[in-house]
Design a protein around this nucleic acid. Structure first.
Lengths: 345, 345
DNA sequence: GCCGCGAATGTAAAGGCTTACATGGGAACC
DNA sequence: GGTTCCCATGTAAGCCTTTACATTCGCGGC
């Protein structure tokens, strides 16, 4: 059997069509001068023998892999998956392939990333997956890199979505609803995005004439942690009237805690999230949250990277994409329409 | 500047260390005989000049790309993302890279897949992303392929998770709860998995001595569709007492419909899902659903593929991974413990 | 009828790496 | 001290493409 040994090469096709390998190459890829009849014969032969060009040989000759790498922690949250899809879509459009590397729970992300650089023309690096020194090393090596949702590193291209302004607006919105004591739940230390949201949260308080929020930030990142933190918080006698959760997972945990304590949302406690995960509109009540342009983040990163690979030597870019607050019911707003806006015939 | 022109090659390192390229190659990759001091010198030089081997050249020489490709529709549902993470994890462990290709909303998935074959040693192909003819073409080309969650194609390796038995057990469970009229919501035509679940659903009815279910299968795949179908169904006078939803998204839509009609779950209508998405436990009431071993599916596929790439010529494998029903409250079961089982200290 | 020219095709080199084979030099042995 | 052997290292071929340059062929112009 040995089904997949000895894949046909350009020589196989050349022999089959009775021409030289140069002609085969020209007929198949180049639009260059080949007699029409020859071209037809070559194409036929290549189909007959089942020829596929060898990407490695091609890459070696062209001095370009035609691939980019994406480094992310994991895909368990829709956030990374959404951005990755954006990268993939744009890369495909640009004729590039996408290699992926998940760092979470992996020993030595450094080595993982270094290995990747052998096979790609450039790298999209997410958040805090690799330390700053690694970024520096990539630059030293000459691997173009775009940082995604990561605080700026000097001289590197960065694509992020807006955090501070939306957080400020959302916190202000909660204050306007009359919720004077709001707790912020999120991990500002490990997530730079969270840190910016916290900063906007603080700003809203100052602008409202408050010295500061009623609670310090409370560390959480996952649903479980959100549940635990919220449970502790809401069980207190002097509990907060609103929970500003740094992502929707945390908010989901907070919902559970509230339900368990028989607190109504938003009547007894308002809750907001961040990310607008697909299920957010199906929370009960529907979750007020902030939508990030996930795919767009990925697209921008891919396009930027491609430009660098092509030799663009312009100033480092720092793209900041706008976010959008999605007002639903959990903040205290009246729900204006049904989740799916069923057509009223 | 021209930051990333002329990456250092093995010649650069050789010159810097004052040895031949063969010695560099041996010192860096082979564990073969190189004097210890020479090795140290080479490693130092390679670090100094920022050398990274060129993957294309290496692949060309080794006649192996060291990469596998994964073809999936999209990553918007946790299902694909979860399996992809499994593939990635296993591939990494096996020293392989992973290339991705999303087909959804892409014109000509055929071309996409063919292009991929230039850069990979083998392919993991999801569900109904590409037609059977494409699978045949891949075989003809000699690209090892593993099918994932796709009905068997003659002679091809397949990895799937169990559907029929769990669906039968779950339907039987609903019948035991006393829900005699159950509607199945899912698209059996476009999703082979759904078709199997429908088959198990039917079997449970027959075993319970019923001629058949009270409703024919009702086509839906997304949340929106689930909402619409459920709304129509539950508004009828003689409405079903249980909804067997073919995935959790549909179930989420059904929840919304029920809430809108002021029907209690599971009191007025029981609802079950499939997939156990992360938020399922946070539905209100928590959703009874079926958990698939997502990562494990990916791991098995990657390992199987690797074996084929390595030349394993054994009989086609048809792996069937077990699923697990997760009983929560939406089917009518009493909730035994709180979602997070808070320690009762 | 010969020259020159352009179109079509062929020849060969280069791209970076691994490795079979060749080489050289020192240690061990007699 | 010479021979042998082995270890460390070097030389060069080959993996498959693309493409610059060379070659061939046919045809028009004189």
């Amino acid at each position: 059997m040995r089904a997949h040994r000895n894949r046909p090469t350009i020589y196989t096709v050349a022999m089959h069509a009775g021409v030289s390998i140069a002609t085969v190459s020209r007929a198949l890829s180049g639009g260059s001068r080949v007699r029409e009849e020859t071209e037809r014969r070559v194409v036929e032969s290549s189909l007959k023998v089942g020829y596929r060009p060898n990407g490695a040989a091609r890459a070696l000759q062209r001095l370009r892999h035609g691939s980019i790498g994406v480094v992310f922690p994991n895909l368990s949250r829709p956030y990374y998956a959404g951005v990755l899809m954006g990268v993939e879509e744009a890369a495909n459009r640009l004729g590039l392939s996408v290699l992926i590397a998940g760092t979470q729970g992996r020993p030595g992300p450094e080595q993982l990333v270094l290995d990747l650089t052998s096979k790609v023309d450039g790298l999209v690096v997410f958040g805090r997956t690799v330390p700053d020194e690694m970024i520096a090393e990539l630059r030293r090596q000459g691997t173009p890199t775009v940082l995604l949702a990561r605080p700026r590193v000097d001289g590197e291209d960065t694509v992020r979505s807006e955090n501070r302004a939306s957080a400020r607006a959302l916190a202000a919105h909660l204050l306007e609803h009359g919720h004077r004591s709001i707790a912020f739940i999120g991990d500002t230390r490990s997530s730079p995005d969270c840190a910016e949201r916290w900063s906007g949260f603080l700003a809203a308080h100052h602008e409202a004439g408050l010295v500061g929020p009623a609670w310090p930030e409370l560390s959480a990142l996952l649903e479980t942690e959100g549940y635990q933190v919220a449970l502790r918080l809401l069980a207190e006698g002097d509990r907060p009237r609103a929970l500003f959760c740094a992502n929707d997972d945390i908010a989901a945990g907070a919902y559970t805690a509230a339900r368990e304590l028989k607190l109504r949302v938003p009547g007894d406690v308002a809750i907001t999230g961040w990310d607008d995960v697909p299920t957010a509109r199906y929370f009960s009540p529907p979750l007020t949250t902030v939508r990030q342009p996930l795919a767009e983040l990925g697209v921008r990163a891919a396009e930027l990277l491609q430009a660098r690979v092509e030799g663009d030597e312009g100033e480092p870019v720092n793209a900041l994409l706008p976010t959008e607050i999605v007002f639903r019911a959990s903040c205290g707003c009246r729900v204006r329409r049904r989740p799916r806006g069923g057509a009223s015939s």
